[in-house]
Design a protein around this nucleic acid. Structure first.
Lengths: 158, 158
DNA sequence: GCAATACTGGACTTTTTGGTACAGATTCCC
DNA sequence: GGGAATCTGTACCAAAAAGTCCAGTATTGC
């Protein structure tokens, strides 16, 4: 269970855009410079994020990229899913099946139950976080603290 | 954030061993047959699990593999960490760093805070599950239900 | 002792993912 | 309208993960 390079770098690009002045846009070379990622790679990441609807692109001489919505309205979990997929996506079932039983509600599906459980735990955490929360954290409040505050209604496992 | 093939198949092998009679052992071909994984691949997975101390190997004609401890004493989270590593391992920090700031307690570390948060959410869930819990589930009780029961003390996010 | 059945470990091949290159299309500014 | 700066899309190369192969060692049963 590892996180992909696209998730790490893509989320960083989003945060860099979130730090920019509202309404302003950053070019690929600018983001590449700030995050020390190669230009082509930044371009690739932003393309994916654009397809997902999280950033908008302005073409032409004074173009660049900007967040599609305000930072407080962009969910971190959704962005990560766009960049790296989900742990337990639809169609996971079909890719593997054991001999004893097919894939109804038995045997090897106890394994899948674990994945579902993990997935929903991750979702519970990430669905509460927006890009804005991460910027707040940079200003001094730690993310765990912020999350604890946000999750007062209590996070159940399943 | 995907789970690796080793985690999926390795955990299945563990469950197959857990289903065997206490004290009995299964050979690689047997496990391969049951789980429809190739023999060499099963061998590789079990080698990793043996290094982790989760299974023991018996060599010779009537050899095979068996769980190193009782199913109720083998933690699912530990097994998965052995098979596929952790989301946020030590040394993650050194692999990436942004331009603006190094890697103290600022900037790009707000990203790392997210990973830490996800990691601890996953740990909270998996640290409560043993192989025996998954076998119980096969007998009728769903894993989410079982987990809910186990997590009565309430699962906080951080 | 000898043959059959196991596990063991390293090297190899295949597949997937990550990253790069380059030609093309769009917009702005003069 | 022309040129400069920008995004866009496909194809290509490199690195890592997944899976396979094979020669080797250990143990059992006859």
């Amino acid at each position: 269970m590892k996180l992909s390079a696209q998730e790490e770098y893509g989320l960083r690009c989003m945060l860099t855009l979130a730090r920019a002045e509202p309404g302003a846009s950053l070019t690929i070379p600018q983001i590449a410079e700030i995050e020390r990622i190669s230009g082509p790679n930044v371009a690739k990441l932003l393309r994916a994020l654009k397809r997902g609807g999280y950033v908008v692109a302005l073409r032409g001489q004074s173009g660049g990229y900007a967040l599609a919505r305000k930072a407080g309205e962009i969910n971190v979990g959704e962005v990560l899913a766009c960049l790296g997929g989900r742990i337990f996506d639809a169609g996971f079932c079909g890719r593997h099946s054991s001999a004893t039983r097919g894939c109804g509600h038995n045997s090897d599906c106890s394994v899948r139950s674990v994945w579902r459980l993990v997935q929903s735990a991750v979702d519970d955490v990430l669905s509460r976080l927006t890009l804005a929360d991460l910027l707040v954290e940079e200003a001094g409040v730690s993310v765990p603290e912020r999350a604890r505050r946000l999750s007062l209604p209590i996070v159940q496992v399943s």
